[in-house]
Amino acid sequence: MKRIIAITILLSIVVFYANERAFAEPFDAKGAASGFVVIVNIHGPLLDADLTMVKSIYLGDKKFIDGVKVKPVNFSEGALKEGFLESILSMTSKEYKLYWVKKVFQESAKLPRSIATTYGAVKFVKENEGGIAYIPSYSAKLLGREVVVIRL
């Protein structure tokens, strides 16, 4: 029994270390290198959002800030969404979908809205104080005054 526990612990440490090596890249300068920027409403509570908060929002753990309901927006399936999920959440699209399916049926959580265009994402954030979305980095110069890019 003790031998089994010892072998299990040893094996777990080896596998854990090997898995951690795959995540050696530091979390910095997120977004720009991956081709997206994160945008928020200039009048909302998310101007000071950092990487941890953005992660919590997109995992459904953070729902309110200063009484304002946070409303995250995902892009439709594609390279931009994959890049965002990988950079911010260290998840593939499949893992993210599975995570949310479980969350919906465990807690009756609300799925983040999915939008197909940069125009739609910017419009949503502009019209919602708690809105947060990600768009291609080359679109950042076209935002207007109501929507700003936050640095993570």
Partner: peptide
């Protein structure tokens, strides 16, 4: 399984 919500605060399962 079914879940639902109304508004930002009310939820059902």
């Amino acid at each position: 399984h079914s879940t639902a919500s109304y508004g930002d605060r009310l939820s059902f399962a």
